[in-house]
Design a protein around this nucleic acid. Structure first.
Lengths: 148, 148
DNA sequence: ATAATTCCTACTCATTTAATAGGATATTGA
DNA sequence: TCAATATCCTATTAAATGAGTAGGAATTAT
């Protein structure tokens, strides 16, 4: 079970946009790709999904770019991830024989559905504002070792 | 984010063994593969992992097979899945540029670590006994429609 | 007009997943 | 002892998925 690079990029990009959100200016994919060290053309595709998911709005052309559609405290990690991952939590499903149906149902109810709920609930608790604050809290932390 | 067929097979097989656990007899991979409708040779590999994970013990040769290593109420879905999936929860990790480190740290702490914990906690709550009971509760449910 | 930007579709490459294949090894029981 | 039954082990294959590239069309500010 893993979170794809796409999901990680989307979260990082959205957090980065939240950091710049007060300026009100459109942010370009290029600038974010540089800041985060992510391939620009790949990030373009991620933003196209974020737009479709209603996380960002866009402006084409020169001086265009992207802007968060809501305030950072009104966008959760769940919103971001589920607009990028086509299904946040998914179980390989195939036809099982009749006699195995009861086990299959038990797994769905007692394991997979609970897992799905746990994941969703967890992701819904964290907003982009939380992420910005947490990032701020850790700022420069990784540089300390060079100063010792 | 998804649970692989391997994980699903492992859970279904372990639950099936739990159903037969009171008999005390070794169960063969062949019989489970028939009952669950899973390829036998693929299921063999799953059982090899379940054994390495300490979920089952094995006996070679005629009249041999597998047996749960502990009572069904002492084996959790977490035990089963984590012995089959090499890492239960995993985030694609790569080197990020220095300036993106604070966001990366925030994501790890506020999203990925929480998710990991939520998933583990959820899976640890459900034992094979729970699954057997849940399966029993649903038994025949899917047949009802033929009798209406 | 031109430069900057989103937007769109198709393609490639590498990795992972699911499944197969074919035996080697061990054990029971006739 | 031998045949049947199982686990055990390693290699291979085929399909799907993931990550990233490529190239250009559409749009807009200056």
């Amino acid at each position: 079970m893993r979170i794809s690079a796409k999901g990680r990029y989307a979260l990082a990009a959205a957090t980065n946009m939240a950091q710049h959100h007060n300026s009100g200016e459109y942010v370009t994919v290029l600038s974010i790709s540089k800041e985060l060290g992510i391939s620009k053309i790949y990030l373009e595709q991620v933003f196209s999904l974020l737009k479709r998911g209603g996380i960002v709005i866009s402006a084409k052309g020169a001086q265009g770019g992207y802007l968060l559609s809501r305030k950072p405290n009104q966008i959760t990690a769940f919103d971001v991830l589920s607009s990028v991952e086509d299904s946040l939590f998914e179980v390989t499903q195939e036809t099982v024989p009749e006699r195995a149906m009861d086990i299959e149902n038990a797994l769905r109810i007692s394991v997979f559905d609970s897992l799905d709920k746990a994941v969703s609930d967890t992701l819904r608790k964290t907003t982009l504002l939380d992420l910005v604050n947490e990032a701020e809290r850790h700022k420069g932390e990784h540089e300390i070792m060079f100063y010792i």
